[in-house]
Design a protein around this nucleic acid. Structure first.
Lengths: 238, 238
DNA sequence: CGGAGAATTGACAAGCATCAATCGAGGTGG
DNA sequence: CCACCTCGATTGATGCTTGTCAATTCTCCG
């Protein structure tokens, strides 16, 4: 991992064919795809391989992105090599829209993914011209901050078991599947760096859950939730 | 603490008399006061006593605020009473502008403070009409997210000593004083809940720093940094 | 089939939380 | 003006969760 940001293929594309990830706010059902529709003309479809870096912390923020397919991790890394995964992005999520002049985190592809790239200039223009678009970006950013605060609680006050339970339920929820089948594109190392614990602890807790019969591991990154109630009990409130 | 949100005095006011907290971005020196100037006419000056709640998590977000004087803590609290301090606000900071329909944290006065209250409706209107204002709110929000990610690194990868050193230097920096005199309006409990550690640990680490001669405690909430280099050494990189 | 990276499992140590008691400061009332 | 009272801060002793180190096993691909 950590190769140069080498894009495999770049070809123009619209958002028309994207699968529509509707946001789940109660007040108004604002479709992400429709909200950033005006940007479609300015977009370039690019593909990124697993482990590749889309941009690095400190880079000049010249582009905004929308993840069309795949998963991305937002990472802050320290001088000694340790890394903190700030967020996982899934298909439909926006990337870089809430950034100032420089990216304050790196973005890396968890697995092969394709995304739309928009020039920041075009985005800035649209932000002042299209109030619906601007409102949507504000909402998305607010939700990001909300998630960050949520995870502070997790990191400060929750045990290893609670964190893993939270993570599994959260991943199950974001997939929207009710049968409890979870696909974990990221490695255990990523999970550990996301939840603020050692990779061995992740492994151990998952092992406990397997023994308890709460989950079944179908393959390395495919897990099925068998006893959702048990997981929710471990997770606790929030 | 945790009394009803009872405002002591509410009288109309403008921002003219506010001391101007200029933001320290490199690209453009955007004054917060000037940026939200258009809101001045809609503002109401209110006073809140130490420990009082300005609004609670889950409340309908009907107002935005600007802290004129004093300190505020943003708090998320759990069912068992444990609390996570997400952020400390100082004079000049905005509050509630990045919120969706509901506040996703509570805001409590660390000490007696006065703040300007603006109706959310007016803010929303201004957000679509005044592009400078909108841009400023975006910047502030982005900076908030940036700080949240920064603290995730702190909470996940830093020791107690590193956290306290970071906190002291951060508080010294935000005051803008070079002589190293820090005023800590919040209690040790607040600090502990902010840094994700036990109150006793806060006390112990501060005691170590005192013995090392890195700091001098002039009073309970007034600390002087004597050996800034030592603190920065402990803190490590960012 | 074989190799390399990732995941698992075990043993051990340590940092920090927890419990408990004492100390200190600030504010009130006599 | 001083004593007292209460809340917060400090200091000490102890245990536990979790990180670290190390070895083995597993899985995915070529």
């Amino acid at each position: 991992m950590d190769e140069k940001p080498n894009m495999l293929e770049t070809l123009p594309g619209t958002l028309a064919s994207e699968h529509d990830t509707t946001s789940w706010t109660k007040d108004a059902f604002v479709s992400t795809a429709r909200a950033i529709d005006p940007l479609a003309g300015h977009g370039l479809r690019i593909a990124v391989r697993r482990g590749q870096e889309i941009f690095a912390e400190g880079d000049a923020a010249e582009s905004c992105y929308r993840l069309a397919d795949g998963s991305i991790r937002l990472v802050k890394l320290m001088a000694d090599g340790r890394r903190q995964v700030c967020e996982f992005l899934k298909a439909g999520d926006l990337l870089g829209f809430e950034t100032d002049d420089e990216y304050y985190f790196s973005a890396e592809a968890v697995n092969d993914c394709t995304l739309m790239r928009y020039p920041r200039r075009a985005v800035e223009t649209l932000l002042v011209e299209d109030k619906l678009f601007a409102r949507h970006v504000r909402k998305v950013t607010a939700r990001g901050l909300q998630g960050a605060y949520q995870r502070m609680v997790l990191l400060c006050h929750k045990s290893a078991q609670e964190r893993i339970a939270w993570f599994l339920l959260s991943m199950a929820g974001r997939a929207g599947l009710e049968n409890g089948d979870i696909h974990l594109p990221m490695t255990r190392t990523d999970i550990a760096n996301y939840l603020g614990m050692a990779i061995e602890t992740v492994s151990r807790v998952l092992g406990q859950f397997k023994q308890n019969g709460a989950i079944i591991q179908k393959s390395l990154n495919r897990i099925q939730i068998v006893d959702r109630d048990a997981l929710e009990l471990v997770r606790g409130e929030v």
